[in-house]
Each structure stands twice: as C-alpha cells, then as structure tokens.
C-alpha cells in the first residue's frame, strides 16, 4: 500500500461533519482502494474533538484534526496556510474538497501553492489504475458539454459537486485521530470579518415542489402570484413547496440568492418543478433537469425550457396562473 494518501479536506456543519464531506469520503474511499492508497481526512475548526470522533467512523485510515480558536469561523487565509503545511507533511497523492463556498475559495489558492492543477465542480471521479492518475469529469460550457480531465501534476486535485454521490456509511473500524499543531498566525489573516448576517435560510433541496420564476416574471411584484400558487399547493398537498428562480431573477433583485436554481445556485430534483417565464439557458437546466416532473409556462413557444418539460403552456403567466389557482382551489 502506497504511503501517499487520498486526502479529503472536510467541512463541519453545526456540530457534525457536513453531508458533502461524507459524500467525498465514499468517493475518496473508492479511489483510495483503486490506487492502493490510504484514505485520510482533515478537519479544521475550533472545539472539534466531538466532530473528529464522529468522523472517525466513516472508513478513513486517519483523521487529522487542526484545532484553533482562530478558525472558530471559516478563515480562507488560515485554511490555505494550514492545508499547505499539512500537505507538505503527508504528501497526498490525491486531494479532494467539496465544491462549496469554502472549497471554491480555498482550492484554487491551495492548488497554486502546491504547484498542481485543479479541476473544479466535478460530477464524477475515477481512478485511472493503469496510469495511477485521477480522472475528473466536469460539465463545461454551462453544462453544454462534459469534459474529462486527467492531469499528471500531483497531488491530483479536484473539488466535487454536492449531492451527486451517496454519502459514506459508518463502519466498525475507527480511524486513527491525529492532532496537528495548528501553527496559525493571526497576522496571516488579511481579511477582517466585520459581521455575518443570516438571511433567507431556505433549503431548496428539501422541497417536494418548486415554483420557479425567471426574467419573464417581470418584477418582484409578479412573484406574489407565484407565492399564492405555492401556498395553495402547500395547503392542499401538505408538501414542502418553495419558490425558486433563475439567475436573472436573482440578479435583478427579485429573489434572494439562496433561491437560485442552476449552475451557480442549487441543483434540485423535486417531484414537481414549475418553470414560469424561464427561457431555459443551459446553466439553469443543469440545476433542475433531474426533477421528476417539469411544467413550463412561457410566452415563447420556441423557448428551450419546453424541450425538457413534461407539460407546457404557451402564454402569459399573468393570465394563466390566477385561473390555475382558481381551478386548483375548486378541486381541493
């Protein structure tokens, strides 16, 4: 067995290990087995002994714990420095992070310092056993093509899209937990954090029905119509119904960014997805194409959104939705 591990840089979520980290652990375990390498996990934070203990049950050989009050909250400058030092110490063959806000910020900077190449937002990973390399599958051109990258530079480094892979399950063997001296210097922090402001804490991925609006909605006023539709469906079906939107709807300030569906927003797969006034740019489609049933309402019969819809209505939502709501009420 090679002594150069597959190293996963984990994230915490509340008092536990994040679900995206567990997904990485399953993917990482397979790659480690295929390459004949060990699987290691590193966790960074403050007061994380409990989390490290929990993480030790998911099949890694080693769990590195880097603990410091300086990283009570995420600090990119300190994470990059700490991971650079850890990589110098453990010399990973493969390095994996989730394509989360943390991964998106840390991985490119770390890749530069480690003098390696990074493939971001991967939807699949596979070991190339013959060449002892990592195959990274990634959608490109807004999802209009899928590329596989295989770079020789080490460590082979990828960030992985959330909710694509199943999470790791607990195993009976516990990982060895290794305390790493944090060796962090507050003066390395170049960015001062003034405050964190919580906003709309919606989790679109838990919704069973999503009513989404795009540029065609015409303004924040129009979303009230959609909200009424959502409320009706919520009441009559007891389902979790949420309002979502395309990137233009968010960029125009009609919706908070937590409700954005698409390449740079949430990727969702509800039972029913209703796309209203959304033309269907690929960067939106990749976020909702896995929905079980898709309904599209658009003025333009040629809109791409109809190509992936089960049901379509060509027309003005302002006339269609009130009639829909009225009929729905009658039938409920």
């Amino acid at each position: 067995m090679s002594n150069r591990p597959v190293l996963i840089c984990g994230e915490t979520e509340g008092d536990g290990i994040s679900s995206s980290t567990l997904e990485l652990m399953r993917a990482g375990k397979k790659i480690a087995d295929d390459l004949g390498a060990e699987l290691s996990l590193v966790i960074i934070g403050n007061n994380i002994s409990g989390i490290a203990d929990e993480a030790a049950s998911y099949g890694a050989n080693k769990v590195y714990k880097i603990e410091s009050p300086l990283v009570e909250k995420f600090m990119a400058d300190l994470w990059v420095g700490a991971l650079e030092k850890l990589c110098a110490q453990v010399n990973p063959k493969v390095l994996l992070m989730s394509h989360t806000n943390i991964g998106m910020e840390v991985a490119p900077r770390l890749a530069f310092r480690l003098k390696t190449r990074l493939t971001t937002d991967c939807t699949d990973l596979e070991a190339d056993k013959a060449e002892n390399l990592l195959l990274c599958t990634k959608p490109v051109y807004g999802g209009n093509a899928v590329a596989i990258f295989k770079y020789k530079e080490e460590p082979h480094f990828a960030t992985v899209r959330k909710k694509i892979m199943a999470p790791a399950e607990k195993v009976s063997n516990k990982s060895e937990i290794i305390n790493v001296a944090p060796d962090m210097d507050a003066s390395a922090v170049k960015i001062e954090s003034l405050k964190i402001v919580q906003e709309d804490a919606v989790s679109l991925d838990k919704a069973e029905i999503i009513i989404s609006g795009g540029r065609g909605i015409g303004g924040s006023e129009g979303f009230k119509e959609l909200e009424e539709m959502a409320e009706l469906m919520r009441k009559s079906s007891g389902s979790v119904v949420e309002i979502g939107g395309s990137r233009p709807a968010v960029d125009l300030g009609w919706l908070p960014s937590s409700r954005q569906v698409g390449l740079t927003g949430e990727k969702v797969s509800p039972d029913l997805y209703v796309a209203i006034g959304i033309s269907g740019a690929t960067q939106h489609l990749v976020g909702m194409m896995r929905s079980k049933k898709i309904v599209a309402i658009n003025k333009d019969k040629k809109a791409s959104i109809f190509n992936i819809a089960n049901y379509g209505i060509v027309g003005d939502y302002k006339e269609i939705i009130p009639a829909f709501n009225k009929k729905w009420r009658e039938l409920s």
Partner: peptide, 25 residues
C-alpha cells in the same frame, strides 16, 4: 435532457391554466 413536452391547449390562457390544474391534480 430531452423530454416529450405535452402542450396544454385551450381557447384562452385561462382555460389552459385550468386544464393544467386538472392534469396536475
């Protein structure tokens, strides 16, 4: 990503809306 889209017809937008509600319901 393609699906066969069934376009919901009707004499007016209102009727299309009602027909969609009936189908989904």
């Amino acid at each position: 990503m393609g699906r066969d889209c069934q376009f919901i017809e009707g004499d007016s937008p209102e009727e299309k809306g009602k027909n969609l509600a009936s189908i989904l319901k």
